[in-house]
Simulated assay, not measured.
Amino acid sequence: MNKNLYPHMKILQSKKLYLRPITLDDAKDIFEYLSQENVVKYLPIKAHKNINETKKFISNYFINNYENNKYSHYAVVYKKENKVIGNMGFNNMKIGSQTGELGICINPKYWGNKFSQELLAIMLPHCFTDLNLKEVTTVVYEDNKFSLKPLQVYNFKYSKSYNVKVKNKIIKCNVYSLSRKDYFNNR
């Protein structure tokens, strides 16, 4: 594992995966999945056309957030291959926030391995113990049924729905939340 330049982004790990801050050295692996339309179809970005777009995105979004003392996304590293297979983390959450919105993006080559569930197993204790959050939320696009399974395992509850325009298409979004109290009561 690399030396952590951003101490507020604590390195986390499970049996198969570890989470660490994203660096420019991750551009090749991140480009591999962010260049795919099926991965970015609900993200506010277009599929990356070249690795330079990915480097710019890493610098302008992830690294900029770290340097501005915000929690952001981690690189999801698959230990077996020492490869970045996705990113998971908070959407622009400031230090001291009471709630955080988690997002996850996994390379399709690794879909179906229950990695989202394994990532929640290491991220939720971090959220409620280390960061002392009162609530964690996540947004699931209605047709993304596979994202619900790991949330159900951890007893996230439906909060509300709203419509959002993504790439000239109206998409229904469902918000799920988990309170600190419910997390500890259900362990």
Rank of each mutant, 00 (worst) to 15 (best):
N4L: 07
L5I: 03
L5K: 15
Y6P: 05
P7T: 09
P7H: 12
H8Y: 10
H8D: 11
K10W: 10
I11W: 11
I11S: 15
L12F: 09
Q13K: 14
K15W: 01
K16T: 12
R20D: 10
T23N: 07
D26V: 02
D26Y: 04
I30W: 00
F31R: 01
L34G: 11
L34S: 06
S35R: 01
S35V: 01
S35K: 02
S35D: 03
Q36P: 02
Q36V: 00
Q36C: 04
Q36T: 00
E37K: 15
N38D: 15
V40L: 10
K41L: 12
Y42A: 04
L43Y: 13
K46N: 06
K46A: 03
K46Q: 08
K46I: 01
K49V: 06
N50Y: 13
E53P: 01
E53S: 02
K55G: 00
F57N: 00
I58T: 01
S59L: 14
S59V: 04
F62P: 03
F62H: 07
I63N: 09
I63M: 10
N64A: 08
Y66A: 14
N68L: 10
N68H: 14
N69I: 09
K70I: 00
Y71W: 14
A75E: 02
K79T: 08
K79R: 11
K79S: 08
K79W: 07
K80C: 05
E81K: 15
N82G: 06
V84M: 13
G86A: 09
G86K: 00
G86C: 12
N87V: 04
M88K: 07
M88G: 03
G89K: 09
M93K: 12
I95S: 07
I95A: 08
I95P: 06
I95Y: 08
Q98R: 15
Q98F: 11
Q98P: 08
T99C: 14
T99N: 14
G100D: 04
G100A: 09
G100C: 07
G103T: 12
I104P: 07
I106P: 01
N107A: 06
N107I: 06
P108F: 05
W111K: 05
N113F: 06
Q117W: 04
L119C: 08
L120Q: 06
I122D: 03
P125Q: 11
P125W: 11
H126E: 13
H126P: 13
T129E: 13
T129G: 10
L131S: 09
L133K: 06
E135Y: 07
V136A: 09
T137N: 15
T138H: 06
Y141K: 05
N144W: 02
N144I: 04
N144F: 03
K145C: 06
K145E: 15
F146W: 12
F146T: 13
S147P: 02
L148V: 05
K149C: 05
K149S: 10
P150L: 12
Y154H: 11
N155S: 10
K157H: 14
Y158C: 08
S161R: 15
Y162G: 03
Y162F: 11
K165D: 07
V166N: 06
K169H: 13
K172C: 05
K172S: 08
C173Q: 14
Y176M: 07
L178R: 00
K181F: 11
N185G: 03
N186F: 08
R187D: 05
